[in-house]
Each structure stands twice: as structure tokens, then as C-alpha cells.
């Protein structure tokens, strides 16, 4: 896997908010097909990293190249067009619309770029794609329910499904299992990771739950105070002293509170 040329190259990324350093010296190469877990205590800079890669926050310095193309300075929607998509810690969906309507909007935008946005949205082809997504993300049962009436887990699935309909090459998931019960979390991740593997999507996900990290990722990036303190396979990372002290220890501490 290391032989693949990287599809995402992050160089010397720096982000400051006044005196606060949210990200510093971030250098990472991500290869196609990798599943990368991003771990770190609250405020370590994980979501900030996701926000910078997807154009929601502009870095103070540094470069992010995707398939050789510089992303910095592009608006979020241009980055979506380039092939990077994301989900959100708190699901960002259209809460007064049904699951099908949410996905139809997502599919229509993904399929009708530019002036095509002025063609009819509801086509048989799109309906066919909709059925495919509903099926793969196990959302058929909820397709006519309004989002605001749905459980957190279903909303999260929808959130992720909406992010992938644009067929991204890289998907960033921001805490996919937060708000999902312990009993459901593996089922949930099986659905998501299964669907993503089928599509050959490179995945980076922010995660607090070390069980999830151990089970699904093949590489770990550990953040501490805006810097990457460890970049290694999950088994090694979870046993690493620094990671234990600055990430897992803090997680443990947080849970006790």
C-alpha cells in the first residue's frame, strides 16, 4: 500500500486563531484505499484538520494537494467537485424533508453540474440511483420519514450517504459513531465501511472510540495540541506510550468525568 503514489499530500499545515495554535507542522501523505483513523483528545485539532481539508477553514500556512492539485483557496463546493467529501459530527441534513428528498437533492446536485441544474430533477435514472443508495445504507424503511422524527443513528447514516453520492475519492468522517449506542455501533460501522469499500473510497475518520479504531482502520494519526504525535498502524499506535498518555489517557479521563 505504501507503494501507491499519495492522493492527498499535506505539507506544513499551520492554523492559528489569534494566539491559539489549532494546527501545526502537519505533514501527511495518504494513499489510495487507506482507511485512516484520526484520534486525539477534544481540542487536539482533529475537526480543524477535517475543516481545512474540505475548505471550511482556510489554513494560516501550508499546502494541501489532492491528486496533485492544490486545494487551498478553493471553496467547499469546489473541493466536493474535486472529489473530497465529508460527514459531520452533528449530522447536517435537511431536517424538515424526508430521507428520500434529502438523498434526491444530494443525487441531483451530484449529477447535474453547472447549467444542467436547470434540467428536471426527478428522473427515472435518479430514482434508480436513489434505490441503490437506500439499499446500501439500509435506509429503505425510513425513506418516507421526515428527518426530524428519526433516531440519531439513522440521521448519521443519512448524513454519510449524502456525502458519498458525489462519488468522492476521499471521504472524511467526523466522529461517525458519536451519538450512537454501544450496541449499534458495530452494525452501523459495518454498513458504512462495507459500502465504502465497495466503492474503493479512501477514508479518513475522526474517532474517539478505540474499539472502532482498532477494528476498522489500517493507519492511525494521533493529534495532540494541533500536532501529529504518532502516525503508525493501529496496533502499534494503541500500544504507543505517547499515544497512551496524551490521547487514550485523556479519553479515559474524560469518560470518567
Amino acid at each position: 500500500m505504501q507503494n501507491n503514489p499519495p492522493i492527498l499530500e499535506v505539507r506544513d499545515l499551520l492554523k492559528t486563531f489569534g494566539a491559539v495554535v489549532a494546527a501545526k507542522d502537519i505533514n501527511v501523505d495518504i494513499s489510495k484505499g487507506e482507511v485512516v483513523g484520526i484520534i486525539g483528545a477534544n481540542g487536539a485539532g482533529k475537526t480543524c484538520f477535517v475543516n481545512m481539508v474540505t475548505g471550511y477553514l482556510a489554513p494560516t500556512e501550508g499546502s494541501i494537494k489532492f491528486e496533485g492539485k492544490e486545494l487551498i483557496g478553493l471553496e467547499t463546493r469546489k473541493i466536493t467537485h474535486a472529489g473530497i467529501s465529508r460527514s459531520f459530527q452533528v449530522s447536517q441534513v435537511f431536517h424538515s424533508m424526508t430521507v428520500s428528498e434529502n438523498l434526491m437533492i444530494a443525487l441531483a446536485i451530484a449529477n447535474n453540474k453547472g447549467a444542467q441544474a436547470l434540467s428536471l430533477m426527478d428522473t427515472p435514472e435518479l430514482r434508480r440511483q436513489l434505490d441503490g443508495v437506500l439499499d446500501r445504507y439500509k435506509l429503505e424503511d425510513h425513506k418516507d420519514s421526515t428527518v426530524s422524527a428519526l433516531a440519531q443513528g439513522v440521521r448519521k447514516l443519512l448524513d454519510i450517504a449524502m456525502a458519498v453520492v458525489s462519488k468522492p475519492r476521499i471521504l472524511l468522517l467526523d466522529e461517525p459513531t458519536s451519538g450512537i449506542s454501544v450496541e449499534e455501533k458495530f452494525d452501523f460501522m459495518d454498513i458504512v465501511m462495507g459500502a465504502l469499500k465497495e466503492d474503493g473510497v479512501t477514508v479518513l475518520f475522526v474517532e474517539h472510540d478505540m474499539e472502532i479504531v482498532a477494528r476498522y482502520v489500517n493507519r492511525v494519526l494521533a493529534f495532540y495540541q494541533g500536532e501529529i504525535i504518532a502516525d503508525m498502524p493501529p496496533k502499534k499506535a494503541l500500544a504507543d506510550k505517547k499515544v497512551q498518555e496524551f490521547v487514550i489517557g485523556k479519553e479515559h479521563h474524560k469518560k470518567k468525568k
Binding site: T54, E75, T76, R77, T80, H81, S85, R86, Q92, V93, F94, H95, S96, M97, I105, A106, I109, A110, K113, A117, M162, A163, S166
Partner: peptide
């Protein structure tokens, strides 16, 4: 409902 999502969807 959600402008941020519309932007992230690419519109």
C-alpha cells in the same frame, strides 16, 4: 434547512 450542507453537496 441547512445551507452548509447544500454547499458541501457541491452547490
Amino acid at each position: 434547512d441547512n445551507e452548509i450542507r447544500v454547499e458541501y453537496l457541491g452547490f
